[in-house]
Simulated scan of single mutants.
Amino acid sequence: MTAPAAAAPESAPPHPGDPGPPALRHRIDRALADFVERESALLEDIDPDLSVVAAQLRRTTGTGKRLRAAFCYWGWRGAGRDDGEDIVRAAAALELVHAAACVHDDLIDRSALRHGRDTAHRSLADNRPGTGRALALLVGDLLISWSGQLFTECGLPAAYLNRARPLWATLARELVAGECLEVLRTRRRDALPPDPARSLQVIRYKTAKYTVEHPLQIGGLLAGAPPALLTAFSAYGVPLGEAFQLRDDLLGVYGTPETTGKSNLDDLTGARPTVLLALTLAAATGSERAELHAALDRPEPGAAELEYFRKLADATGARRGVEELIAARAARATAAVTAAHADRLLTTDAAEALHALAARCLTRTA
Protein backbone atom coordinates (compact mmCIF):
# COMPACT_ATOMS: atom_id res chain seq x y z
CA MET A 1 0.00 0.00 0.00
CA THR A 2 1.41 3.37 -0.98
CA ALA A 3 1.09 6.13 1.58
CA PRO A 4 -0.48 9.42 0.54
CA ALA A 5 1.93 12.13 -0.41
CA ALA A 6 3.18 14.21 2.47
CA ALA A 7 1.90 17.70 2.81
CA ALA A 8 4.35 20.37 1.77
CA PRO A 9 6.35 21.61 4.74
CA GLU A 10 5.23 24.97 5.96
CA SER A 11 7.60 27.76 5.10
CA ALA A 12 9.32 28.98 8.23
CA PRO A 13 9.77 32.71 8.76
CA PRO A 14 12.97 33.87 7.08
CA HIS A 15 16.01 33.59 9.34
CA PRO A 16 18.29 36.66 9.30
CA GLY A 17 21.11 34.28 8.33
CA ASP A 18 19.14 32.50 5.59
CA PRO A 19 20.46 34.30 2.51
CA GLY A 20 19.42 33.45 -0.98
CA PRO A 21 16.52 33.61 -3.39
CA PRO A 22 13.08 33.74 -1.78
CA ALA A 23 12.42 30.74 0.43
CA LEU A 24 15.65 28.88 -0.39
CA ARG A 25 15.39 26.94 2.86
CA HIS A 26 11.78 26.03 2.09
CA ARG A 27 12.80 24.82 -1.38
CA ILE A 28 15.46 22.59 0.17
CA ASP A 29 12.85 21.23 2.60
CA ARG A 30 10.48 20.59 -0.29
CA ALA A 31 13.12 18.76 -2.34
CA LEU A 32 13.91 16.53 0.62
CA ALA A 33 10.26 15.90 1.47
CA ASP A 34 9.38 14.94 -2.10
CA PHE A 35 12.29 12.51 -2.37
CA VAL A 36 11.91 10.99 1.09
CA GLU A 37 8.15 10.56 0.69
CA ARG A 38 8.58 8.77 -2.62
CA GLU A 39 11.28 6.43 -1.32
CA SER A 40 9.55 5.82 2.01
CA ALA A 41 6.36 4.85 0.22
CA LEU A 42 8.29 2.36 -1.90
CA LEU A 43 9.74 0.90 1.28
CA GLU A 44 6.25 0.52 2.78
CA ASP A 45 5.06 -1.18 -0.41
CA ILE A 46 7.43 -4.06 0.36
CA ASP A 47 5.63 -4.90 3.60
CA PRO A 48 3.33 -2.99 6.00
CA ASP A 49 5.67 -3.86 8.90
CA LEU A 50 8.16 -1.39 7.43
CA SER A 51 5.84 1.55 8.08
CA VAL A 52 7.55 2.22 11.41
CA VAL A 53 10.92 2.51 9.63
CA ALA A 54 9.44 4.73 6.92
CA ALA A 55 7.92 6.98 9.55
CA GLN A 56 11.29 7.35 11.24
CA LEU A 57 12.95 8.21 7.93
CA ARG A 58 10.42 10.99 7.43
CA ARG A 59 10.96 12.32 10.97
CA THR A 60 14.73 12.15 10.75
CA THR A 61 14.87 14.15 7.52
CA GLY A 62 12.11 16.62 8.41
CA THR A 63 14.17 19.01 10.54
CA GLY A 64 17.52 20.72 10.45
CA LYS A 65 19.30 24.00 9.81
CA ARG A 66 19.98 23.06 6.15
CA LEU A 67 23.39 24.70 6.38
CA ARG A 68 25.17 22.10 4.29
CA ALA A 69 22.71 22.49 1.46
CA ALA A 70 23.00 26.28 1.67
CA PHE A 71 26.79 26.13 1.42
CA CYS A 72 26.59 23.80 -1.59
CA TYR A 73 24.09 26.11 -3.27
CA TRP A 74 26.33 29.14 -2.73
CA GLY A 75 29.37 27.23 -3.98
CA TRP A 76 27.46 26.92 -7.25
CA ARG A 77 26.24 30.52 -7.28
CA GLY A 78 29.65 31.81 -6.21
CA ALA A 79 31.11 30.41 -9.42
CA GLY A 80 28.66 32.53 -11.41
CA ARG A 81 25.89 29.99 -12.06
CA ASP A 82 22.18 30.83 -11.99
CA ASP A 83 19.55 29.66 -9.54
CA GLY A 84 17.62 26.49 -10.41
CA GLU A 85 15.79 23.56 -8.89
CA ASP A 86 18.43 21.10 -10.08
CA ILE A 87 21.14 22.66 -7.88
CA VAL A 88 18.67 22.85 -4.99
CA ARG A 89 18.09 19.10 -5.26
CA ALA A 90 21.82 18.40 -5.54
CA ALA A 91 22.44 20.52 -2.45
CA ALA A 92 19.61 18.82 -0.57
CA ALA A 93 21.42 15.49 -0.98
CA LEU A 94 24.02 16.70 1.51
CA GLU A 95 21.30 16.99 4.14
CA LEU A 96 20.77 13.23 3.84
CA VAL A 97 24.47 12.70 4.59
CA HIS A 98 24.01 14.85 7.67
CA ALA A 99 20.85 13.00 8.71
CA ALA A 100 22.69 9.68 8.45
CA ALA A 101 25.64 11.03 10.44
CA CYS A 102 23.28 12.23 13.19
CA VAL A 103 21.55 8.85 13.44
CA HIS A 104 24.87 7.02 13.69
CA ASP A 105 26.37 9.62 16.04
CA ASP A 106 23.41 9.35 18.39
CA LEU A 107 23.78 5.57 18.34
CA ILE A 108 27.48 5.76 19.18
CA ASP A 109 26.91 8.31 21.96
CA ARG A 110 23.67 6.72 23.19
CA SER A 111 22.09 10.18 23.06
CA ALA A 112 18.44 10.45 24.04
CA LEU A 113 17.39 13.70 22.37
CA ARG A 114 17.97 15.59 19.14
CA HIS A 115 15.99 18.69 18.15
CA GLY A 116 14.00 18.17 21.36
CA ARG A 117 12.68 14.77 20.25
CA ASP A 118 13.68 11.18 20.86
CA THR A 119 16.66 10.11 18.80
CA ALA A 120 16.07 7.47 16.14
CA HIS A 121 17.15 4.50 18.24
CA ARG A 122 15.00 5.65 21.16
CA SER A 123 11.97 6.29 18.96
CA LEU A 124 12.27 2.95 17.18
CA ALA A 125 12.69 1.13 20.49
CA ASP A 126 9.35 2.57 21.62
CA ASN A 127 7.66 1.01 18.61
CA ARG A 128 9.37 -2.38 18.78
CA PRO A 129 11.21 -3.04 22.09
CA GLY A 130 14.65 -4.56 21.70
CA THR A 131 15.15 -3.53 18.08
CA GLY A 132 15.72 0.21 18.32
CA ARG A 133 19.48 0.27 17.90
CA ALA A 134 19.49 -2.26 15.06
CA LEU A 135 16.74 -0.46 13.16
CA ALA A 136 18.40 2.93 13.67
CA LEU A 137 21.67 1.59 12.28
CA LEU A 138 19.84 0.46 9.16
CA VAL A 139 18.01 3.79 8.88
CA GLY A 140 21.36 5.58 8.90
CA ASP A 141 22.74 3.23 6.27
CA LEU A 142 19.75 3.80 4.00
CA LEU A 143 20.06 7.58 4.38
CA ILE A 144 23.64 7.41 3.13
CA SER A 145 22.47 5.45 0.10
CA TRP A 146 19.68 7.94 -0.49
CA SER A 147 22.11 10.86 -0.48
CA GLY A 148 23.95 9.47 -3.49
CA GLN A 149 20.67 8.63 -5.20
CA LEU A 150 19.21 12.12 -4.80
CA PHE A 151 22.48 13.67 -5.95
CA THR A 152 22.61 11.62 -9.15
CA GLU A 153 18.89 12.20 -9.83
CA CYS A 154 19.04 15.97 -9.24
CA GLY A 155 18.75 16.83 -12.94
CA LEU A 156 22.17 18.36 -13.54
CA PRO A 157 24.11 17.01 -16.55
CA ALA A 158 26.20 13.90 -15.93
CA ALA A 159 29.34 15.82 -16.87
CA TYR A 160 28.69 18.27 -14.02
CA LEU A 161 28.07 15.46 -11.53
CA ASN A 162 31.24 13.65 -12.57
CA ARG A 163 33.31 16.69 -11.62
CA ALA A 164 32.10 16.38 -8.02
CA ARG A 165 32.06 12.59 -7.58
CA PRO A 166 35.64 12.25 -6.29
CA LEU A 167 34.94 14.79 -3.55
CA TRP A 168 31.91 12.76 -2.41
CA ALA A 169 34.30 9.89 -1.72
CA THR A 170 36.62 12.22 0.16
CA LEU A 171 33.71 13.58 2.20
CA ALA A 172 32.64 10.09 3.26
CA ARG A 173 36.17 8.96 4.09
CA GLU A 174 36.98 12.02 6.18
CA LEU A 175 33.63 12.01 7.98
CA VAL A 176 34.13 8.37 9.02
CA ALA A 177 37.75 9.14 9.97
CA GLY A 178 36.59 11.89 12.31
CA GLU A 179 33.96 9.66 13.90
CA CYS A 180 36.52 6.88 14.38
CA LEU A 181 39.05 9.25 15.92
CA GLU A 182 36.44 10.43 18.40
CA VAL A 183 35.56 6.84 19.33
CA LEU A 184 39.23 5.90 19.71
CA ARG A 185 39.94 8.93 21.90
CA THR A 186 36.91 8.69 24.15
CA ARG A 187 37.25 7.39 27.72
CA ARG A 188 40.96 6.77 27.32
CA ARG A 189 43.29 8.69 29.59
CA ASP A 190 46.11 8.46 27.04
CA ALA A 191 43.72 9.77 24.38
CA LEU A 192 42.58 12.71 26.47
CA PRO A 193 45.82 14.64 27.10
CA PRO A 194 45.75 18.38 27.69
CA ASP A 195 46.39 18.98 23.99
CA PRO A 196 43.63 20.75 22.07
CA ALA A 197 45.32 19.95 18.74
CA ARG A 198 44.13 16.34 18.96
CA SER A 199 40.60 17.50 19.73
CA LEU A 200 40.71 20.02 16.88
CA GLN A 201 41.71 17.21 14.54
CA VAL A 202 38.59 15.28 15.53
CA ILE A 203 36.23 18.17 14.87
CA ARG A 204 38.00 19.11 11.63
CA TYR A 205 37.23 15.72 10.13
CA LYS A 206 34.06 14.80 11.99
CA THR A 207 32.25 18.09 11.43
CA ALA A 208 34.11 21.02 9.88
CA LYS A 209 34.90 19.65 6.46
CA TYR A 210 31.55 18.02 5.69
CA THR A 211 29.60 20.96 7.11
CA VAL A 212 31.20 23.84 5.22
CA GLU A 213 34.28 23.14 3.10
CA HIS A 214 33.13 20.08 1.16
CA PRO A 215 29.59 21.33 0.45
CA LEU A 216 31.01 24.60 -0.88
CA GLN A 217 33.53 22.78 -3.02
CA ILE A 218 30.96 20.30 -4.32
CA GLY A 219 28.79 23.21 -5.43
CA GLY A 220 31.81 24.84 -6.98
CA LEU A 221 32.88 21.67 -8.78
CA LEU A 222 29.38 21.18 -10.16
CA ALA A 223 29.63 24.70 -11.55
CA GLY A 224 33.12 24.23 -13.00
CA ALA A 225 34.77 26.61 -10.55
CA PRO A 226 38.47 27.38 -11.11
CA PRO A 227 41.05 25.95 -8.68
CA ALA A 228 41.65 29.36 -7.12
CA LEU A 229 38.00 29.60 -6.04
CA LEU A 230 38.04 26.07 -4.65
CA THR A 231 41.11 27.05 -2.63
CA ALA A 232 39.28 30.11 -1.33
CA PHE A 233 36.36 27.89 -0.31
CA SER A 234 38.79 25.82 1.77
CA ALA A 235 40.30 28.92 3.35
CA TYR A 236 36.80 29.95 4.41
CA GLY A 237 35.26 26.55 5.05
CA VAL A 238 37.76 24.83 7.33
CA PRO A 239 38.07 27.58 9.96
CA LEU A 240 34.34 28.31 9.85
CA GLY A 241 33.49 24.62 10.19
CA GLU A 242 35.82 24.32 13.17
CA ALA A 243 34.31 27.44 14.75
CA PHE A 244 30.83 26.00 14.18
CA GLN A 245 31.69 22.83 16.12
CA LEU A 246 33.53 24.74 18.85
CA ARG A 247 30.37 26.78 19.34
CA ASP A 248 28.39 23.54 19.42
CA ASP A 249 30.69 22.17 22.13
CA LEU A 250 30.09 25.24 24.28
CA LEU A 251 26.34 25.02 23.75
CA GLY A 252 26.48 21.33 24.65
CA VAL A 253 27.83 22.18 28.10
CA TYR A 254 26.44 25.64 28.85
CA GLY A 255 23.19 25.53 26.88
CA THR A 256 19.86 24.22 28.05
CA PRO A 257 17.87 21.33 26.57
CA GLU A 258 14.93 23.67 25.98
CA THR A 259 17.10 25.72 23.63
CA THR A 260 19.52 23.21 22.13
CA GLY A 261 17.05 20.34 21.84
CA LYS A 262 19.47 17.85 23.43
CA SER A 263 20.80 16.99 26.87
CA ASN A 264 23.62 19.17 28.19
CA LEU A 265 24.99 16.06 29.89
CA ASP A 266 25.80 14.30 26.61
CA ASP A 267 29.44 15.40 26.31
CA LEU A 268 30.11 14.71 29.97
CA THR A 269 28.38 11.33 29.92
CA GLY A 270 30.26 10.32 26.80
CA ALA A 271 33.57 11.81 28.03
CA ARG A 272 33.97 13.19 24.52
CA PRO A 273 37.43 14.57 23.71
CA THR A 274 36.27 18.14 23.07
CA VAL A 275 38.57 21.13 22.91
CA LEU A 276 36.81 22.52 25.99
CA LEU A 277 37.72 19.38 27.93
CA ALA A 278 41.31 19.40 26.65
CA LEU A 279 41.85 23.03 27.63
CA THR A 280 40.27 22.43 31.04
CA LEU A 281 42.50 19.43 31.74
CA ALA A 282 45.56 21.35 30.57
CA ALA A 283 44.98 24.22 32.99
CA ALA A 284 43.59 22.28 35.98
CA THR A 285 45.62 21.41 39.04
CA GLY A 286 46.40 17.79 39.79
CA SER A 287 43.55 17.46 42.28
CA GLU A 288 41.11 19.23 39.97
CA ARG A 289 42.11 16.94 37.11
CA ALA A 290 41.60 13.87 39.30
CA GLU A 291 38.15 15.07 40.35
CA LEU A 292 37.18 15.80 36.75
CA HIS A 293 38.35 12.36 35.65
CA ALA A 294 36.29 10.85 38.46
CA ALA A 295 33.22 12.71 37.16
CA LEU A 296 33.90 11.46 33.62
CA ASP A 297 34.26 7.89 34.88
CA ARG A 298 30.77 7.85 36.40
CA PRO A 299 28.29 5.87 34.29
CA GLU A 300 25.61 8.54 34.63
CA PRO A 301 27.00 11.98 35.54
CA GLY A 302 24.33 14.32 36.82
CA ALA A 303 23.73 17.98 37.58
CA ALA A 304 26.47 18.12 40.22
CA GLU A 305 29.14 16.81 37.84
CA LEU A 306 27.97 19.16 35.10
CA GLU A 307 28.14 22.14 37.44
CA TYR A 308 31.65 21.15 38.55
CA PHE A 309 32.82 20.93 34.94
CA ARG A 310 31.27 24.30 34.12
CA LYS A 311 32.92 26.01 37.09
CA LEU A 312 36.28 24.42 36.38
CA ALA A 313 36.15 25.33 32.70
CA ASP A 314 35.37 28.93 33.70
CA ALA A 315 38.00 29.10 36.45
CA THR A 316 40.79 27.66 34.30
CA GLY A 317 40.01 29.98 31.40
CA ALA A 318 39.11 27.05 29.14
CA ARG A 319 35.75 28.50 28.18
CA ARG A 320 37.38 31.81 27.32
CA GLY A 321 40.03 29.93 25.36
CA VAL A 322 37.39 28.25 23.21
CA GLU A 323 35.76 31.63 22.56
CA GLU A 324 39.14 32.96 21.43
CA LEU A 325 39.60 30.01 19.07
CA ILE A 326 36.14 30.71 17.62
CA ALA A 327 36.92 34.41 17.13
CA ALA A 328 40.24 33.69 15.41
CA ARG A 329 38.64 31.22 13.02
CA ALA A 330 35.76 33.57 12.29
CA ALA A 331 38.26 36.27 11.34
CA ARG A 332 40.08 33.90 8.99
CA ALA A 333 36.86 32.83 7.31
CA THR A 334 35.71 36.42 6.85
CA ALA A 335 39.07 37.45 5.42
CA ALA A 336 39.01 34.56 2.94
CA VAL A 337 35.64 35.62 1.52
CA THR A 338 36.62 39.27 1.39
CA ALA A 339 39.82 38.43 -0.46
CA ALA A 340 38.08 36.10 -2.92
CA HIS A 341 35.53 38.80 -3.73
CA ALA A 342 38.23 41.47 -4.08
CA ASP A 343 40.10 39.19 -6.50
CA ARG A 344 36.87 38.74 -8.50
CA LEU A 345 36.85 35.01 -7.86
CA LEU A 346 33.53 35.17 -6.02
CA THR A 347 30.32 36.89 -7.05
CA THR A 348 29.01 39.71 -4.89
CA ASP A 349 25.78 38.00 -3.94
CA ALA A 350 27.66 34.85 -2.93
CA ALA A 351 30.16 36.83 -0.84
CA GLU A 352 27.30 38.51 1.00
CA ALA A 353 25.57 35.17 1.50
CA LEU A 354 28.72 33.52 2.87
CA HIS A 355 29.25 36.37 5.32
CA ALA A 356 25.64 35.98 6.47
CA LEU A 357 25.94 32.21 6.78
CA ALA A 358 29.10 32.62 8.86
CA ALA A 359 27.25 34.94 11.22
CA ARG A 360 24.44 32.42 11.48
CA CYS A 361 26.90 29.61 12.33
CA LEU A 362 28.70 31.59 14.98
CA THR A 363 25.91 33.45 16.79
CA ARG A 364 23.47 30.54 17.08
CA THR A 365 22.02 29.41 20.40
CA ALA A 366 20.93 25.94 19.25
Rank of each mutant, 00 (worst) to 15 (best):
T2M: 14
A3I: 05
P4R: 01
P4H: 02
A6G: 14
A8R: 14
P9W: 02
P14T: 13
D18I: 03
D18S: 13
G20V: 08
G20E: 13
G20P: 10
P22R: 08
D29P: 11
A31G: 12
D34F: 00
E39A: 12
D45T: 14
L50F: 15
Q56D: 14
T63Y: 11
K65Y: 07
K65D: 11
R68Y: 04
A69C: 09
A69M: 11
A69F: 12
A70F: 07
F71A: 00
F71K: 00
G75A: 09
G78H: 04
G80H: 07
G80Q: 12
G80K: 09
D82W: 00
E85G: 12
D86Y: 03
D86W: 05
R89E: 01
A91T: 09
A93E: 09
C102M: 14
S111Q: 09
L113S: 10
H115V: 03
R117K: 07
D118A: 13
R128C: 08
L138C: 12
W146I: 02
W146A: 05
F151C: 08
E153Q: 14
C154N: 09
P157S: 01
A158N: 07
L161C: 08
L161K: 07
R163Y: 04
A164W: 07
P166H: 09
W168V: 11
T170K: 10
L171S: 03
R173V: 04
L175H: 13
V176S: 06
A177M: 10
L181V: 09
L184W: 14
R189A: 15
D190L: 06
P193D: 01
P194L: 13
R198H: 12
Q201M: 13
A208D: 06
Y210A: 00
V212P: 00
E213D: 15
P215I: 05
L216H: 13
L216W: 15
P227Y: 06
L229K: 13
L229M: 14
A232Q: 03
A235V: 06
A235R: 15
Y236L: 10
Y236A: 02
L240F: 06
A243V: 07
G255V: 01
T256C: 07
T256I: 08
E258T: 10
T260C: 13
S263T: 11
S263L: 08
D266S: 15
D266H: 08
D267S: 08
A271G: 14
P273D: 01
L277W: 15
A278Q: 07
A283R: 15
A283V: 09
A284F: 06
A284K: 04
A284Q: 02
T285S: 15
S287F: 02
R289Q: 14
E291L: 03
H293I: 12
L296Y: 12
R298V: 12
R298K: 15
P299Y: 05
P299N: 02
G302Y: 06
G302R: 03
A303W: 11
Y308V: 00
R310L: 01
L312Y: 04
T316N: 05
T316V: 02
G317F: 11
A318C: 04
R319I: 00
E323K: 01
I326V: 14
A327N: 03
A335W: 03
A335D: 08
A340Q: 04
D343I: 00
T347I: 03
D349K: 04
L354D: 12
A358F: 01
C361Y: 01
T365Y: 02
